[in-house]
Nucleic acid binder design. Structure first.
Lengths: 190, 190
DNA sequence: TACCGACGCCTAATGACCCTAGGCAACTGA
DNA sequence: TCAGTTGCCTAGGGTCATTAGGCGTCGGTA
C-alpha cells in the first residue's frame, strides 16, 4: 500500500490552502485527510488535533504576513511607507482570506509568537517616521490596526454593499490615516 | 410529560444568551436543546436548523443594536453625537460579544434586513452634522465602521496586549475620528 | 364534560466530524 | 538483509445536525 508521504508541514500547507478556499471553518481534519486520500486518523501522527492544525495555519500565516509587510516598508518612510504597508496588508487579506482569518484567532499560548510580534514591531517601526512617542505611539498603532483590520474584515464579509468603488474608499481611508498621523500631536493632546 | 413551552422567540433568546456566554460557535442546536431540557429534534419545530437559528440571533441583535444606537445620537450632533454613537457601539459589543459577532455573520438573503439597514442609516445621519456629501459620506461611513468594528473586534479577541489603558486608546481613537471628519473636505480632496 | 384535532416533544436513525488505541506493513539505515 | 521506526490503517466511542414518524397533551368545540 502506497504511503501518501505526509509531513506536518505538508498537512499545514494543505490546511492553509483549504482555509483560503473554504473559510477557516472549512479547515477540518476530515477535509484535509480527504485531500490527501487518507483516513482521518492518519493525520494525528502529524498534527495533535484540530486546534493544533489551525494554530499551525495561524503561525504559517503570521510568518508569511510579516515577510510581506517587511519588504513593503523597507526603504520607505512617511506616507509612502504607510501606503505600502496598508496595501500589502489588504493585499494579503484579500489573497488569503482564510489565512488572514486564522491570524485573528486566539493563539495557543504555547505557540511561537515571534512572527506575530514581528508584525506589531513593523507597525511601530513604520510609525517612527511620524515622530510619535509613548503613549501616543501605542494609541496610534491601535488606531491603525483597528482601521486596517476593520476595513479588511468588513470587506471580506461583504459588508460594503454600496456600488461606490471600494478601492477608492480604501485609498481615502489610508490617506485619512496619514493626515491623522501627521497632525496627531497638535490635534489630540488630551 | 410536561411540555417545555418553547417558542421560536424563546429559543432565539436562549441562543443569543448562549452566544454571549460561549461564543457564536457555542450556539449549537444541542446546546440550546440542553438548556431547555429537551431533545435536539424538538427544536426543529421552532427553528429550521442551525443556520436559521444563528440568523435569528443576528436579527435579534440587529434590532437591539439599532435601538441602542438610535437614542444615543438623538438630540446630539457633531462631536457629542460621534462620541455617544461610538461608546454605545463599543458598549454593546462588550456587553454582548456573541450577539455582536452574530451581527457580522453573512445575512441570510431571505431575512429581514431592515434593522441592519437602520444601523447604517443612523451612521449616515450622524455624519450629516459634519456636512459631508457623496461620495465623501460613503467613504467616511466606511472609515468609521472600519475603525469602530476593527477596534471592538481586536479588543474582543484580546488583540491589545500592551498594558496601556485600552479605554484611553478608545477615547483617542474616537477623538481622532472627530478631527478627521471635521477636516475631511480640505484634507482629502483627491 | 367529553371528545378531537393540532402540534409539541419524543424515539429512532443517518451521516458528518473529532479523537484514541492498537496493528501491520512499508520504508530506513546498519 | 534484517530490525526498528513510523506512516497509515481498522475499530470504536463521542458530539452534533438533521429527518421521519409516533404519541400524548392541550385548547377548542359540541
Amino acid at each position: 500500500m502506497r504511503r501518501a508521504g505526509l509531513t506536518t508541514d505538508l498537512v499545514t500547507r494543505a490546511a492553509a490552502d483549504l482555509a483560503d478556499e473554504a473559510g477557516l471553518d472549512g479547515v477540518t481534519v476530515s477535509a484535509v485527510a480527504r485531500h490527501f486520500g487518507v483516513k482521518d486518523a492518519s493525520l494525528y501522527s502529524h498534527v495533535r488535533g484540530l486546534r493544533d492544525l489551525r494554530s499551525r495555519v495561524a503561525l504559517l500565516a503570521a510568518a508569511e504576513f510579516a515577510d510581506l509587510l517587511g519588504p513593503a516598508v523597507a526603504g520607505r518612510s512617511g506616507r509612502d511607507a504607510l501606503v505600502a504597508f496598508a496595501d500589502a496588508y489588504r493585499g494579503y487579506a484579500r489573497a488569503h482570506p482564510g489565512r488572514y482569518a486564522a491570524l485573528q484567532a486566539p493563539v495557543d499560548p504555547a505557540a511561537d509568537v515571534s512572527a506575530a510580534r514581528k508584525g506589531i514591531e513593523l507597525t511601530y517601526g513604520m510609525l517612527r517616521g511620524y515622530g510619535l512617542e509613548e503613549p501616543d505611539a501605542t494609541d496610534a498603532v491601535r488606531l491603525l490596526r483597528s482601521t486596517l483590520h476593520g476595513f479588511v474584515d468588513l470587506e471580506a464579509r461583504g459588508g460594503f454593499n454600496d456600488p461606490r468603488d471600494v478601492d477608492a474608499s480604501w485609498r481615502r481611508t489610508v490617506a485619512a490615516l496619514h493626515v491623522l498621523l501627521i497632525h496627531w500631536r497638535e490635534a489630540l493632546s488630551e
